[in-house]
Each structure stands twice: as C-alpha cells, then as structure tokens.
C-alpha cells in the first residue's frame, strides 16, 4: 500500500469504516447482475448497489484517493464490518444481509445527520436511500417468511446464519458521535418486529465470534473476503499507474 492511501486520525478512520461498508456491500450486490430471480429485482439490486457505491465514493474521498483506497489496500487494511463481505448465498441470504445492514445504516446515518460536518451532509442524503433499502429488505422478508414453506425455511436459515455478524454493528467506531446503545435497542426492536410479522423466529445465540483479535473494524475479516478483493483489485493492480 502506498503512503497516499494510509489514512489516519479518528475522523478519516470513521469515514473509511463507513466507506468500506458501502463499497464492499455494493461489490457483493453487483454480483447479482444477470442472476436475479426476476427483472424487477435486477433493477432494484443494481439500484441499491449504485446508491452504496455513491456513498462509498464520497466517504473514501474524505479519507484519500478513492481508487487508491479501493484497489491498493491489503485485506487487513479494510475496515468494513464482516456482515457486508458475506457471500450472496441464495436470495434469502442476500435479503437477510440487507435487512440487518440497511436497518443499521439508516439508524446510524439518522444520528450522524444531526451531527457535525463533513459526515452530517453525506448522512442526511444517504439516510433517504437507506430508508428505501430497508423497505425493500423488509418487504422481501415478509414475502419470503410468510410465503411458501420453502421460502420460510430458507429465510429462517439465512437470518440464523448471518446473526453472528450483527454484534459488530454496535461496537463504537472511533470518531463517530453516536449513541450506540440506543442504536442497538432500536435496531433490535425494528428487526425483531419485521421478523416476527413475517412469521419467522428472531434468531438467538451469539452475535459475534469470541476472538480477541476483533473483527472487520480491526481489519480482521472472513475467508471469502480475500477472494472478493482479489477479483475487485486484479485489473487495477495489473496496470500500475494507469488511468482509466
């Protein structure tokens, strides 16, 4: 990694954490293109990916050069939560990931929008996008949970499988002035409400793996993340110094 891409200071670190969340989830959602269950979902998933990519570009630019940061950092330097890097799985897994993340992101940006520049301006704009993303995820959670036996089973499996990555969402991020306890309580009430309405069971069990090394915010990721980066960064890295 070049020195140009090494951000420091709590403000830029916070922007980097949120920027990486948005970038990596956009990368995952982009993988759906051409594979979605129906044409309307091709449009919706690409639309959400585009919103997130737009947020990522603004946030990364607050920390340095967006391409330098996206394409030249090593895995351990990424600060996204592990939830967003989880593979798409079936449509239910993607929706569960969206439900957990977009609910969190909307609440987080809602708080940041009332805070200080430069994040408040971005948050005020992004919070509207997040509300749409959450609504999309909630509608699908309801349809899949309260649809057929198969969709119910798949949605429950997905909610359970991704639950272990939700604890990290509420660990304070340095440089962000956020009431984390309130955020967690509101998130839990919101997610539990929709899951229950969808005739599904709110997952129990641990919300994080017990590991002192930490998780995504400390640059500790899961195995699929290395492959995601290899694919995303390969072309850019193959032509050092080139403009595109």
């Amino acid at each position: 990694m070049s020195t140009a891409a090494r951000p420091d200071g709590p403000g830029t670190m916070a922007a980097l954490a949120l920027g990486d969340d948005a970038l990596i989830l956009a990368q995952r959602l982009g993988e759906w293109a051409g594979h979605a269950p129906e044409l309307e979902e091709e449009v919706a998933l690409a639309n959400i990916a585009l919103d997130l990519l737009g947020q990522a570009r603004t946030l990364l630019t607050l920390s340095g050069d967006e391409d330098e940061l996206a394409f030249r950092r090593e895995e351990r330097d990424f600060r996204n939560v592990q939830l967003v890097e989880q593979p798409n799985g079936d449509f239910a897994h993607t929706i569960a990931r969206q439900l957990y993340f977009s609910t969190y992101q909307e609440l987080l940006y809602g708080q940041l929008a009332g805070g200080t520049e430069p994040l408040s301006a971005l948050a005020a704009k992004a919070v509207k996008e997040c509300a749409y993303h959450r609504d999309h995820a909630e509608q699908w959670t309801l349809r899949l949970g309260d649809g057929t036996e198969e969709s119910h089973r798949r949605m429950q499996t997905a909610l359970d499988a991704l639950w272990r990555y939700t604890g990290e969402l509420f660990r304070p991020v340095e440089g962000l002035d956020v009431a984390w306890d309130t955020l967690e309580d509101t998130w839990r009430a919101s997610v539990t409400g929709i899951v229950t309405q969808a005739t599904l069971t709110p997952p129990e069990g641990p919300q994080a793996a017990p590991w002192a090394a930490g998780a995504g915010r400390q640059g500790v990721h899961t195995e699929p993340f290395g492959r995601l980066l290899a694919e995303m960064q390969h072309l850019h890295r193959s032509h050092p110094g080139a403009s595109w």
Binding site: D67, E231, M232, L235
Partner: peptide
C-alpha cells in the same frame, strides 16, 4: 473487476 470506482458505477448503471 471494473478498474476504477467511477467506471464501476457507470457500468452498473448501464447494466441496470
């Protein structure tokens, strides 16, 4: 694999 974030956004929008 788009080589810049700007190109990635343009391509995503086009496919959409």
């Amino acid at each position: 694999r788009a080589p810049s974030l700007r190109r990635k956004a343009i391509l995503l929008a086009k496919v959409q």
